[in-house]
Amino acid sequence: MNAFEYAAPTTKEQAVGLLADRWGDAEVLAGGTDLLSLMKDYLPTPKRVVNIKDIKELQGIKYSSATGLRLGALATIEELLSNAAVKKEYPALAQAAEGVSSPQIRNAGTIGGDLCQRPRCWYFRSGLGYFPKDDGGKDLIPTGQNEYHAILGNSGPAYFVHPSSLAPALIALDAKARIFGSAGWREVRVEEFFVTPNNDGDRETVLKSNEILGEIILPPAKGIRSATYEVRQKEALDWPLAAAAVALKMSGNTVQSARVVLGHVAPVPWRSQAAEQALGGKAIDENTASEAGSAAVNGARPLSKNGYKVQLARVAAKRALLQAAQGGA
């Protein structure tokens, strides 16, 4: 890890002032569970690390039935898990947090960090590049070791999957991200927070290098049934192979409207309108859930070694729907 300057501002304004005009010069530190391991591998080599953990305004979780849920970007995954309102009103979010299977990461890792973490792609992490290529300039991943890579939105040059555990649930629950920069606050839907990078210097979100993610706002979830289902090979310390979060607005026993979002299948959390449309006006049962699961992976284009993930994503969506129909608010 290269030597760096360390700053620990106590206000968001100071923090933003300490960040740089281009990516790579400064990095934001919160829980540190991702940034430190990246820096140890010399992936980013920032001149300055800005620790935002002391900014009180960005901490905490607040719920009101009238305005909904406000998640400080610095609230930990553990705070999310132990929040009774989250468990009751937003089960998809609570279940997604449960999927972060290491107590250490749950205690240190933050909600903002979960959304801003870098891809777990083993080419990227092994120092082979953000868009790894062979000596002839051809992308390595489509015919390489792509068993954990994208099956959707993978026309290149990005083939990784977005690793966020919480994003699919937040998108299903129609959350908004509030971003703070030198010009003050701006707001985007979490769905639009993520972007597929095209150039080497790009990142995976709409954040600019001198902005910070401040908070996440969820609308009240009255009448919404939601669930997250992750397909993980191991119980312990493992990433999902595929995941799905769903939120259903019910009218009696039938679906009035639905939001279906897949995780770990594309460079961004993948909202499937085809699956959502397949559910409209139907009751959720094994058949309708199965059909929606199949619709969710419409257009999937597996790479050489990840065809199995199409099946896993289909099953994740089906099981999330069945789970939501049985439980939820």
């Binding site: 062979d134 390595l140 390489g144 312990a236 493992d238």
Partner: peptide
């Protein structure tokens, strides 16, 4: 990786071992 000959899971993240629940 076949093309580059480089190791890809030389870590405890993707070189997977069982946990107590497994």
């Amino acid at each position: 990786d076949e093309v580059t000959g480089r190791p890809l899971n030389a870590n405890m993240e993707f070189y997977k071992l069982a946990g107590i629940g497994d």
